[in-house]
Computed example of a mutant assay.
Amino acid sequence: MLQFPLIVVGGSAGRIQPLINLAKGLPADFRAAVCIVIHISAHNPSYFPEILARAGPLPATHAQHLGRIESGHVYCAPPRHHLLIENGHFRITTGPKENGVRPAIDPLFRSAAHQQGSNVIGVVMSGMLDDGASGLWAIRHSGGITVVQDPNDAEYDSMPRSALNHVDADYTVRSQNLASLMIDLVSESAQRRLDIEAAIKEHVPLDPLA
């Protein structure tokens, strides 16, 4: 398991400005990796990593096949490829389309849930139809944290509403508050790790309700 939280984000129509706001709101010392799948045209180059890199302090790139996942980075799925998580690295595939698209959100979410379990924070944002719902369910049932953009805040509410219909999400949030929520969740995760390490060193049972 990675030694830092893995944030996986999926969006479709209406997701650009909220994701720019997310990148803008995250600090330079952010102790998590952010992986993003957005539905993009297979016929045009994607400049989305460059847009995110200009928007905020974190480096943003297209994920590379077998590339190592690093904290403090934003990774985007490349056009025409699914983005998967495997043993702390990326796997880029040209497998069958899911929900009519490639890249699709569900493959990233499912692989993250399988590989990282409770270490994952999954976020479904604005978009049409229902990509991301089953993947968010997998994250929820693997012990991860689930977040959905408030449908009333989304330019296109089908994806957020579908996610909420299938998953009892931990948080429903307006896009303007997403970055601050991520900062809080990552900070809580870091503190939890410190508590576990201290308990192990001192041979003190960790309070499961803490």
Rank of each mutant, 00 (worst) to 15 (best):
A133C: 03
R140V: 02
V120Y: 13
Q115E: 10
N119G: 05
H141I: 03
F109Y: 13
I139D: 15
G143Y: 02
Q116T: 00
L129T: 12
H114A: 08
G132M: 06
I121Y: 00
S111D: 07
H141M: 11
G127D: 03
G143Q: 04
W137Q: 15
G127H: 00
G127Q: 00
D130W: 11
I121G: 01
Q115S: 09
G122N: 02
V120E: 11
R140C: 13
S118Q: 11
Q116V: 00
V120W: 10
G144P: 05
G144F: 09
V124S: 05
S126E: 01
F109N: 02
A113T: 06
A112K: 08
D130S: 15
G135P: 04
R110K: 09
G143C: 13
S126L: 05
L136A: 03
L136E: 05
G122L: 08
A113M: 07
R110H: 14
S142K: 14
A133W: 07
H141P: 09
S142C: 11
A133T: 01
P107N: 06
G122Y: 01
S111E: 11
N119Y: 05
V123I: 13
M125R: 00
A138E: 13
W137S: 15
S134I: 15
L108I: 01
G144R: 03
S134R: 13
A133R: 09
G117A: 10
S142M: 13
W137A: 14
Q116R: 10
A112C: 11
G122Q: 01
A133D: 08
A112Y: 01
I121E: 00
A138S: 15
M125L: 13
V123L: 15
A133F: 06
G117F: 03
M125P: 01
S118G: 07
L136P: 02
R110Y: 10
F109K: 04
L129V: 12
V120D: 11
G122F: 02
G143T: 04
D131Y: 03
N119M: 01
A133K: 06
R110Q: 13
W137L: 15
G117M: 08
